[in-house]
């Protein structure tokens, strides 16, 4: 019997849903293979999240609580994760693939001499380790991968697994942690543009994404109005984040975020493979583009060929009526 441990990421005072997706899958794997599923929360107020995590059925929840974890910094997080690995001795250690995970996953694997697969879209246990699928070549191709050894790290793309609750009677184990200032060489000077009330695109049910076609003020106003009618998160193509029109954290695609909403509306976006890489797992895709040959139409469930400035106003009106 081995331990399948899941890292529960906290950001802006909320549990990242992608971590709970991983925990749900790990618990199912544990049940099917007679392993134990455990979870770890590393945060300035880790204990606040224990009750929520319990619902997903880990048998043990480790907490590492220290004010240093208020903001993401890789050195303290790495130190905490290595302590947790010493204590829990996980066979598999799973993470939701957030930017914070990407910051430490390679370093943790190097530190622990562990095998590691990042950003997988699914994984299963084998006799020697895990096998996993990863999107590669700007997500045009899926690769099959195996990782072997007695310590394996894996990070999973958001939206890969459904949430699944289990027995809520976990033991809680607090792990002692301290770090001296002298151990942290980097200084976090400032955080710009973080706001707790922004919709996390990785978790949004509906996303309105704007591309170069909607770059002027009128276009932006229409995007904002459409998003507010649908209560949607706003995303962007690289053309707009690069031009400084949209906040860089809103970029969707290979460089940006991977999203999997129920509804994705691409407005004035051509559909370059690097953009599509981030949104092709959306349930329903709507594209509005004036070029009938734009590649975005190859993947859209509903394509509207037309000028967005003419299409969006009546579209918004219709949606308002429906929302009534």
């Amino acid at each position: 019997m081995s331990t399948l441990l899941t890292h529960i990421a906290i950001s802006d005072g909320k549990i990242k849903r992608s971590s709970l997706e991983v925990l749900s899958h790990m618990r199912q794997l544990a049940e099917a293979n007679r392993h134990t599923a455990e979870a770890v929360i590393i945060d300035a107020e880790a204990s606040n999240y224990v009750d929520e995590v319990k619902k997903y059925g880990p048998s043990t929840i480790y907490t590492v609580e220290d004010p240093i974890f208020e903001n993401h910094m890789n050195t303290p997080l790495l130190k905490a994760l290595t302590k947790v690995m010493d204590e829990a001795e996980p066979y598999i250690f799973g993470f939701g693939s957030t930017e914070s995970t990407k910051d430490i996953l390679g370093a943790l694997a190097a530190n622990q001499d562990a095998a590691v697969l990042s950003d997988v879209s699914e994984f299963e246990l084998t006799d020697e380790g895990i096998e996993a699928k990863r999107p590669v070549m700007a997500a045009k191709i899926l690769s099959d991968n195996v990782a072997e050894g007695d310590r394996i790290l894996v990070s999973v793309r958001s939206g890969s697994y459904d949430l699944d609750e289990g027995d809520a009677d976990a033991d809680v184990v607090d792990i002692d942690f301290s770090i001296d200032d002298s151990e942290i060489q980097a200084t976090l000077r400032e955080i710009i543009g973080a706001s707790g009330d922004k919709i996390d695109l990785a978790e949004a049910e509906t996303i309105v994404a704007a591309g170069r076609g909607a770059k002027d003020e009128e276009g932006q106003d229409l995007i904002n109005e459409l998003a507010s009618v649908l209560n949607a998160g706003i995303g962007a193509s690289r053309a707009l984040t690069e031009a400084g029109i949209m906040d860089p954290s809103l970029q969707i695609g290979q460089t940006g975020k991977v999203v999997s909403p129920q509804l994705y509306i691409a407005v004035g976006i051509s559909g370059a493979i690097q953009h599509v890489a981030g949104m092709t797992n959306s349930k329903v895709i709507v594209a509005i583009n004036k070029d009938p040959d734009a590649p975005i139409f190859d993947i859209a469930d509903y394509g509207i060929v037309g000028d967005l400035y003419k299409v969006l106003p009546p579209f918004i009106e219709e949606l308002k009526k429906i929302k009534g």
Partner: peptide, 9 residues
């Protein structure tokens, strides 16, 4: 570029 904001390090 972090999960939400930009960190100056």
């Amino acid at each position: 570029q972090g999960d939400a904001g930009q960190e100056i390090i």
